[in-house]
Nucleic acid binder design. Structure first.
Lengths: 149, 149
DNA sequence: CTACCTGCAAAGACTTTGCACGTGT
DNA sequence: ACACGTGCAAAGTCTTTGCAGGTAG
């Protein structure tokens, strides 16, 4: 019986990320594995608190999560999002998952993922201004169906 | 001799904003006038600190700027931007100026304004998900020409 | 073994809030 | 006159940092 092919299995993706950790000369520690595991499994954008509270086996210090996210962001494995409520959120970077955007409910702060980006060419707007190494962040804000009731 | 017509004069725009203040049942105070004046004159997105330091005649408390920006945001005259450095920035809302986006230099944090948005139809992406009262925020991040040297 | 990572506690940056006084309408 | 706005100071939230001990490679 063959394995499902619908996507790289969780452990495959995790192993890939751990390999990248090593390539970036970062150590594969219990905390970092747990953080990456959480991001692979649930991959919404999460606040530091949310990531921290997903620690089950052995907890770890909040400061460690902050430091880990900073390191992971620096390697490009993880991306920081800010949705205007003053709290940073993190998710696997485009490189590690896929290009997408978000819809954020102004009321309940629920975050939806938009898997299809119809804006492949959009970075050229900034290219025209002479910028390099361009990325873009496109977020929608609105009132979600639930909150409209 | 006729007045230039290229755009509403500074004082015209300011008066319009002050009228809106009244309509929103907010009082026209010295601080608020100064804040709106600063936004009309220079209208980049500014941090609270930057707005505060533009006070010339009579200074005002930082807390007052925070409170004023919150009120102005609530009325929809002003919009809050977050560019990922943990500090909120403010500018006149789309309604009070015009729709635009930003290019932010990852190195020097310089913020450019992109006056032309080619994405009029883009909010439909979120509409399809059942969201209402949609707005979008599109920011580009890159390395500006200066920092490339 | 050595450099890197972590926990803990303290400090920092930005923002919010309580209260008494001041000011716009 | 009265409700709203402001200054000041204190507190709150999120994040960063110093240091001593712990751990991966």
């Amino acid at each position: 019986m063959k394995m499902s092919k619908k996507a790289a299995s969780t452990s495959t993706r995790l192993n890939h990320l751990l390999a990248e950790l090593k390539q970036s000369k970062l150590r594969v520690t219990e905390s970092r594995v747990a953080i990456l595991e959480a991001l692979v499994d649930h991959h919404g954008p999460f606040t530091i608190e949310e990531i921290h509270s997903q620690f089950t086996a052995k907890s770890c210090d909040l400061a460690t999560v902050y430091r880990s996210m900073a390191s992971l962001e620096k390697t490009g494995m993880v991306r920081r999002c800010e949705f205007g409520d003053g709290t940073a959120r993190f998710e696997l970077s485009e490189r590690e998952s896929h290009h997408h955007h978000h819809v954020i409910c102004k009321r309940c702060r629920r975050v939806d993922v938009l898997d299809d980006c119809e804006l492949k060419e959009i970075d050229r707007i900034a290219q025209k201004r002479g910028f390099a190494e361009i990325s873009h962040s496109l977020e929608f804000f609105g009132v979600c169906p639930n909150c409209q009731k």
